[in-house]
């Protein structure tokens, strides 16, 4: 099939839906973080309770619900976890966005970096 044939089998509403979705989701990737408060603050929650409020500049390591959370050089990561999937560990270092461990019910959110207040979007945000 050529590209012309593919375009022929899509309907007008298919194309409208595609453009609308791309524009809305693309724009909200940029806009949503701008409207949320920033300040380089790390919040660590477990079982839906806020347990820690830390700064990205605080270098420390915290044990929580089987997770080892490491904050170093303005970034945060889950160094180790006892959960089966280890998605949180594979996500690596982040300086904005969130790391979520569903099995252990731990959420780590970062309010963005103070050094780059309108900082770019990386793969993990």
């Amino acid at each position: 099939m050529t590209i012309a044939e593919i375009i022929r089998v899509t309907t007008l509403f298919d194309r409208i839906l595609l453009v609308v979705l791309l524009v809305i989701t693309g724009a909200s990737i940029v806009l949503v973080p701008l409207y949320l408060p920033r300040g380089g603050q790390i919040m660590i929650e477990a079982n839906n309770k806020l347990l820690y409020k830390l700064q990205l500049s605080d270098d420390k390591t915290i044990e929580i619900n089987g997770l080892t959370v490491e904050i170093k050089a303005g970034k945060v990561r889950v160094a180790d976890s006892d959960c089966p999937g280890k998605v949180c560990v594979k996500q690596g270092w982040i300086d904005s966005g969130a790391i979520i461990c569903l099995p252990n019910r731990v959420v780590i959110t970062v309010d963005g970096t103070p050094t780059a207040p309108k900082g770019g979007v990386d793969a993990t945000t």
């Binding site: 693309g26 990737i29 949503v32 949320l36 839906n48 979520i100 569903l102 019910r105 959420v107």
Partner: peptide, 21 residues
Amino acid sequence: VFIQNLRSILILAPVILFVGT
């Protein structure tokens, strides 16, 4: 079911929906 944290979901949702598109 898991996390009543609207903030982190709001940050992740646009990326998830964009990749989903």
